[in-house]
Design a protein around this nucleic acid. Structure first.
Lengths: 258, 258
DNA sequence: ATAAAATTAAAACGAACGTTTGAACGATGC
DNA sequence: GCATCGTTCAAACGTTCGTTTTAATTTTAT
């Protein structure tokens, strides 16, 4: 076999290593020397191939997100074509949006859980260049799915849907990023719950699958929860508004097929 | 009035400024010189009062979290005393846990939305010392609330409850941290939805209140969603398991008072 | 084969990082 | 008065950061 350094290969190896190291340490705490050292390429290779550290991070995401969001648009197109003008079901929309993402976690060639964790963590990074980059990458997809949800839930105020879209994105991102973060907080890791604990190997794809099975019902339950009865916000109850205005049901588990 | 530099005051000013800067830039991207410069204290003051940058971050969280988690335990104690041995309602538990936190966002003297955003973002920071610190701060509270949820939902497998606890923590953290992050992604900020956009001032406390009103129904809806029908995970459907095994209801919004 | 272009290599750049030092300051107690 | 102790100060420490430079090397095209 030929020596593994054949031009284009350097680029890919840098991207793969950077993806993993950014996930493990975060953007700021990952140095160029760590990346080039682990990738066994020269320090100057990153600046030659990508221009800067910022551009490297953007490319790490771009190669995955362009595929992901493309798939998401295709999935939505397909659903809407099948529906033939009728509104989609919320579960279909969520499956298309979140299922497509979670399926990346099962495919190592698409980045696997490494990329999913990186994505979940980076969404909260405050750096300006990251946020504007994500805005551009997500603009089209979010807009399409937002409209689909508006049509699917015509009786729910649009502002409420946007709030719940935020909540769903958050639940998903943390569930992913937190498979080795929140487990420390809750003292009970999802890795344990999923059977195997390793952060690499075959256990990860199994984790992605179980995560999807658990996450989708939760998201749908939240999306379709009773609407809050909004208070007059000008008035200030200040200290204890303990649940007032939030009319909620409290029996066991919702009916399976209502 | 006396000069504002009177010993103990330096500590507090450093903590307040560090809290804001860590929130705005993240831990790694916030330098000691940024902190001491903005706080108008000498560069060495941080190392003198706290020992190191890591210890400063820990103290920033400790002064808020010890209060928060103390309040959470008190709230749970009070609820369980009222219930007199009976299991609590899920909504009571969520209100005690998440409501206590969200009420911090309305009180500037408790850190306000600045601390809430910092908390949401820092939960995904991968640095080891941060995670072990959070583990210690949260261990007791999470354990108590986990048990309360187990009792409140006796028919739900405990593993499922832990999963959904993760999801709820994620939804909350992102909803908070993302009031100026995810708005870029969704193209529709929660600040706009809440009426005012400023990241400081009176608009923030209003945001915290509306956030609570929106978030609690969502969380409860997710917590009480129908259980997933688990597949045999040894078998691998690989590419398209599109929603199979996730039995979900799909009509409009759940009944308000079922 | 040979010129041109693309890539890799080694070394150095200035800047910024967290931390430490040792002296000066200011209040307090005797 | 003076010694004391907690605090502040300016300056410097050694290290690491992202990036650049210049030359050597490999690949590509004619």
């Amino acid at each position: 076999m030929p020596d593994q350094k054949s031009g284009q290969d350097t680029r890919e190896r840098i991207l793969d290593i950077a993806e993993r190291l950014f996930m493990e340490n975060g953007y700021e705490a990952t140095s160029m020397r760590m990346i080039t050292g682990a990738a066994e390429v020269n320090l100057a290779a990153v600046n030659y191939h990508f221009g800067s550290k910022e551009a490297l991070l953007r490319e790490v995401f771009r190669r995955r997100l362009s595929w992901l969001n493309g798939e998401r648009l295709v999935a939505l197109d397909k659903l809407e074509a099948q529906a033939g003008g009728a509104a989609l079901k919320p579960s279909q929309i969520l499956e298309a949006f979140f299922g497509t993402l979670l399926r990346m976690g099962e495919d190592e060639s698409l980045g696997g859980m490494t990329f999913l964790r990186l994505l979940g963590r980076t969404l909260t990074e405050p750096a300006e260049f990251i946020r504007t980059f994500f805005a551009g990458e997500y603009a089209q997809v979010i807009d399409r799915y937002k409209l689909a949800l508006f049509r699917a839930l015509p009786d729910v105020p649009k502002a409420e849907i946007v709030w719940r879209l935020h909540f769903m994105l958050g639940a998903m991102s943390y569930a992913i990023a937190g498979t080795d973060v929140l487990q420390v907080v809750t003292g009970c890791g999802l890795g344990d719950l999923a059977g195997e604990g390793g952060s690499d190997g075959a256990g990860d794809t199994a984790l992605a699958r179980r995560l999807a099975q658990r996450l989708m019902p939760f998201l749908l339950g939240g999306l379709r929860a009773p609407l809050p009865q909004l208070l007059d916000v000008a008035h200030k109850p200040a200290v204890t508004h303990d649940g007032a205005g939030v009319q909620i049901h409290d029996s066991g588990i919702n009916a399976q097929n209502q």
